[in-house]
């Protein structure tokens, strides 16, 4: 036994000398920077500049003039407008709740679909292709499609509720109906995406671990909760991250389907920012909406990483 312990220690002890390698790495890094610089400059011009500019705009007095606008000094006014506006407070809560509900529902349904697909031996390819149709559809078209389904005079939904004797409710006419309808449209479109990501994670899981669990006496249910889910954690975290990022930027679906209404009941942060900037030409508050949304997304992602306890490069720790 003593002999075995020493072998184990030996494997952890030695670390390679690093000096020379570092010198080489630095040189390589310099060359690398040189080659990437042109591309980085272009990226900076088209993305970083607008981001930085809108952050600056959000803390500036923006004055409209005949041929554009001018920034006139620093102010916290734009943010104080937001904080005191009921529309903004509503949009924040709406976006967060909307994100939470859709992501959770998509995750549950998507995981179920993935589990079923993984069991299938025949026809998996076809089913996956079918499943991806909603996801491959452009959001605007998806929104138009649901606009048709929910239409108050000739909509499919109307027809169906009429058939089962529930009358003819106008789905998009009430805030609750509009929000629920929008969520359904969103879940229909993005669940396949979650399902595919989870499926990819599932097929990567080691088969012999499942056999070991079977020998250890784990039932199917226990195996799912104790083995599958924990092992899928990094995969699920990835899916959640993608979805949270997307859901926070919710724009095209309400823009086409509800126009933010009825009232401002489906005003997401992105819709609000857009209306403020480009309809009302409130550039300062609009930029503040954009900036605060970005900050919220960042927080949301950090929070979801926290929940799934995933750190880059530490999945196995």
């Amino acid at each position: 036994m003593a002999a075995i312990s020493t072998t184990a220690e030996r494997t952890t002890a030695a670390a390679p000398p690093r000096g020379r390698r570092d010198a080489n790495t630095k040189k390589l890094a310099r060359i690398g920077w040189g080659f990437s610089a042109p591309a980085l400059l272009v990226i900076a011009a088209v993305t970083i500049f607008p981001i930085v500019y809108s952050v600056i705009m959000s803390v500036s007095n923006v004055q409209l003039s005949g041929n554009g606008f001018a920034l006139n000094g620093i102010t916290g006014g734009n943010y104080s407008v937001l904080v005191h506006a009921a529309v903004w407070r509503y949009a924040v809560i709406f976006t967060i709740v909307y994100t939470l509900i859709t992501v959770i529902v998509e995750l549950v349904i998507g995981t179920c679909i993935a589990l079923v697909l993984e069991r299938l031996t025949a026809g998996r390819g076809w089913l996956m292709a079918l499943l991806l149709i909603p996801w491959s559809m452009i959001t605007v078209i998806n929104a138009e499609l649901y606009g048709y389904i929910y239409n108050g005079t000739y909509g499919v939904y109307q027809y169906l509720t009429g058939l089962v004797g529930l009358g003819h409710p106008v789905i998009l006419g009430t805030p609750t109906g509009a929000i629920a309808g929008m969520m359904v449209a969103d879940i229909w479109k993005t669940t396949p995406f979650v399902a595919i990501i989870v499926l990819a994670g599932l097929v990567m899981l080691p088969g012999d671990v499942y056999e070991a669990a079977e020998m250890d006496g784990a039932s199917g249910w226990t195996t799912f909760w104790r083995i599958t889910l924990p092992l899928l954690r990094p995969t699920i975290a990835l899916a959640v991250m993608f979805r949270v990022l997307q859901a926070f930027g919710l724009f095209d679906l309400p823009y086409v389907l509800t126009g933010g209404g009825p009232g401002y009941s489906t005003n997401s942060l992105a819709i609000l920012g857009y209306f403020a900037m480009f309809k009302n030409l409130d550039f300062g508050p609009g930029a503040a909406v954009a900036t605060s949304t970005a900050a919220l997304v960042l927080l949301g992602c950090l929070a979801s990483l926290r929940v799934f306890r995933v750190q880059v490069g530490k999945e196995n720790a």
Binding site: D208, V209, A212, E214, M215, A218, I227, L231
Partner: peptide
């Protein structure tokens, strides 16, 4: 009889430890 009711333990070639 299912594996869990055979009262058998197995050591796998690649160990098949639960990584988490």
């Amino acid at each position: 009889v299912t594996p869990k009711d055979r009262d058998i333990a197995m050591v796998f070639q690649n160990y098949a430890l639960y990584p988490h």
